[in-house]
Amino acid sequence: MHADKFVIPAEAASATKLETDVEVLRAQAGLYAFLGRCLESEVDQALLVALRGPLRDTLAELGIDIGEDLRSGAPKEVLADLGEEFAALFVVPGAVLPYRSAYETGRLFQPQADLATAAYRDAGFDFRNILSGEFPDHVAVMLAFVGRLLERQAEALEAGNTDAAAEWQRRREHFLLHQIGGWAVGWSRRAQSCARHPFYLAVLGLAEQVIWADIGDIADEKTLKRLVKSNRRPLVKQKTDHAFRKASGF
């Protein structure tokens, strides 16, 4: 798997209809940006304010429970608890690492990271880490990237440039199918099974649904079957050969 293979082939042009509703695009961009922010780093004061303010009612209307303490607890304690949960879920050894490389290969920073970087750069973005141990194939960065592509599509439409809008949509769909679709849903499910705080349960559940819904819109049946299998990562346990084990060890 090499980054230079990321170049989107011409035939990869979107088979879906061009989304021209700018409001829809901006709403989708906001949703992806929200998911990206929640999963990219610990909840900080600004995000807490947003969750308690503008987002509170909407989340409640959607039936998304972010936890009573987050809604009304003492900010210092809430942020500390969420920081601890973030570290346990995504950072410390034993965590459900949010990297495509780790999910697919069991190793950090494999060519999957190069593919993500190539996609970002091809679209005029780049990745930088703020803290150590952050890689370009982080699920949150990928989701945020989808959000940025949606924004660009909306901007192109507002500028009356339909061709450019189509190109942004093509990039987004290709990225969703080829870099997110095969693992992020399965990863979200795994992370939910480990999450203890309602906020992360909610965000991970939302991520799973959003990603899968969008992929369902753009993937054909065959592709969907492949992605379902890929996300499930079925157990391919090797047979235990006791005779071999006896001969090779004790």
Binding site: A87, V91, G106, L108, L131, S132
Partner: peptide, 27 residues
């Protein structure tokens, strides 16, 4: 180098010693 259980970020203990509760901080 690529071990997924490698500690990649400074960690500050938040629980009791050995409890496994940490906060991620910068170098």
């Amino acid at each position: 180098v690529y071990d997924p259980d490698r500690i990649m970020s400074p960690l500050l203990r938040t629980g009791k010693r050995g409890e496994g509760k940490w906060k991620r901080i910068s170098y």
